[in-house]
Write a protein that binds this DNA or RNA. Structure first.
Lengths: 141, 141
DNA sequence: ACCTGTTCGTTGCGATTGCAATGAAAATAT
DNA sequence: ATATTTTCATTGCAATCGCAACGAACAGGT
């Protein structure tokens, strides 16, 4: 018996993630011209309110260079604003502009719809899928 | 209620896949100096026997340019051999060398161990996870 | 047989990524 | 108070990726 790549979990995860990511990335690319890192930064800001780059970096699983570049592009597009932190002047505090907030409200609904359809298509395994993914994300290996 | 990225399936999938991939990629990088595409090509050749680049491309979810470059590096390292197809001279037939075969036998065992440990850590959700991933990979848009 | 369209693999090129280096600011130690 | 070390964010740079273009070989139609 030889090793079967198709049954190998890291491979399956990688292929499935790439497929879903592409499919959803295409939506907010067409809808708002956002890349994946930009989308993640926006989504996090929408929920967290004003936070520094390092907070986003930590919570959104992106390198700080990527967050930094995404932020400067989003700021250029008027979707977020940035200002130095009040007391600690190393930090840069990012925040959604009204435009950015409006966009995220629209995209949030679209994302929820996408998720709902996905969960429906996956059927009863969906809950276990999410539970396993959470387990992987915060802890397992 | 605002949108929660942490509960968003495409995001969870992407983060989980990246984490597992890194973790396993580090193993065969240290073990054999292989990259992810190279590993996938090797793994497929080990199971399929001699096949053309386009077959690998189709089954292993990599662009043909990536398979092509991976193949030429593997050939340089003496792990695979390539020769033109007998009747269709557009095709390049790839095949593991004895060295490549021996390496894959070793890596296959390591991969199986990795998978076993992962499944054990994930517990009862693991089966559902794989079933959901398979569903995503071949079908659900 | 000839012509057109298609398939295959390689290569070029722009864009993206991750890592390391940099410089500014703050925390900690002496 | 000064010096050393650490933390942040940005920037530079090399490596990688995906897409498109290309040349070679084949298939199908006329």
């Amino acid at each position: 018996m030889s090793f079967d790549l198709d049954e190998f979990l890291p491979y399956q995860l990688s292929v499935a993630a790439a497929k879903i990511s592409r499919s959803f990335a295409e939506i907010y690319r067409a809808e708002a011209g956002l890349t994946i890192p930009e989308w993640r930064v926006m989504a996090h800001l929408h929920r967290s309110g004003p936070v520094s780059v390092r907070d986003i970096t930590a919570r959104v699983h992106l390198d700080k260079s990527i967050v930094s570049r995404a932020a400067s592009k989003l700021e250029g597009g008027g979707l977020i604003s940035s200002q130095p932190h009040e007391t600690d002047r190393r930090l840069v505090v990012l925040e959604l502009t009204p435009d950015g907030n409006a966009l995220m409200q629209r995209l949030g609904r679209i994302a929820d719809d996408f998720q709902a359809r996905l969960l429906r298509d996956l059927g009863p395994d969906a809950a276990h899928l999410q539970s396993a993914l959470r387990r992987i994300i915060d802890g397992v290996p």
